[in-house]
């Protein structure tokens, strides 16, 4: 990395966490939530994606998901490993959130890689992505557990990431505004978690 570019890389990392990666996560979990309505509702909703021309979908996948996510993830791993966690000495909520932000990030690298392998890569190899595919995956209780932890990691990481974003860009400055942002982002965490977990268990 060239000299004195770190500030821009960090701000880019912060921005990409929200736009597009965070927005994509919300969209993704919302779409999955249709599974709560049963097999047909889910297949109908995901089938809409098939209406998008294949080449356009591919470009969108790379521009909106893979490239920004890879940048955020790999730079995130570097950031996570430069921290020296000290929650045993400072066990405040914020210090735990700091640590969890990094732990969930690292877990997400593993989870997302596996998730892409199980779904997107299988699709590229000819499998059909539909309700049955997910139902087969989470038929194993281990996989179901793995997915639930993955979903909760992602929702916490995004919710707490929104809190961090607000500070990183200087939007919330006063302790009071930061405290309220904590409440708001934890409500976001709860809502996204309910949406995400309700979706995955409805494949069981």
């Amino acid at each position: 990395m060239s000299k004195d570019r770190e500030f821009l890389w960090r701000r880019l990392h912060s921005l990409l966490g929200i736009i597009p990666v965070g927005l994509f996560l919300v969209f993704h979990l919302s779409l999955n939530f249709t599974a709560v309505g049963g097999e047909d509702a889910y297949n109908g909703a995901t089938g809409m994606m098939e209406l998008v021309p294949h080449a356009l979908l591919l470009v969108m996948e790379w521009v909106i998901i893979y490239i920004p996510l890879m940048f955020h993830a790999f730079y995130g791993v570097y950031i996570a490993f430069t921290a020296t966690n000290n929650t045993s000495r400072f066990s405040t909520f914020r210090n735990w959130a700091f640590r969890l932000q990094r732990m969930t990030g690292i877990f997400l690298v593993v989870f997302i890689a596996w998730h892409i392998f199980q779904t997107r890569i299988q699709k590229a190899l000819g499998a059909e992505v539909n309700y049955d595919m997910m139902a087969e995956i989470v038929a194993s209780p281990w996989m179901l557990g793995f997915y639930i932890v993955g979903i909760l990691s992602a929702t916490f990481h995004l919710a707490n990431g929104i809190w961090g974003f607000l500070v990183s860009w200087g939007i919330t400055q006063s302790p009071k505004s930061q405290q309220i942002a904590t409440y708001v982002t934890m409500v976001i965490f709860a809502i996204l978690s309910i949406v995400g977990v309700a979706a995955i268990v409805s494949f069981v």
Binding site: K3, D4, R5, E6, F7, R10, R11, I79, A83, N86, F90, T92, R94, N95, A97, F98, R99, Q101, W163, G164, V167, S168
Partner: peptide
């Protein structure tokens, strides 16, 4: 502080203000 090792390295653990 917008250079390397500067402001952007803060990860908001907020231990500093507590200590």
């Amino acid at each position: 502080i917008m250079g390397d090792g500067g402001l952007a390295n803060c990860g908001n653990s907020q231990n500093c203000v507590a200590a």
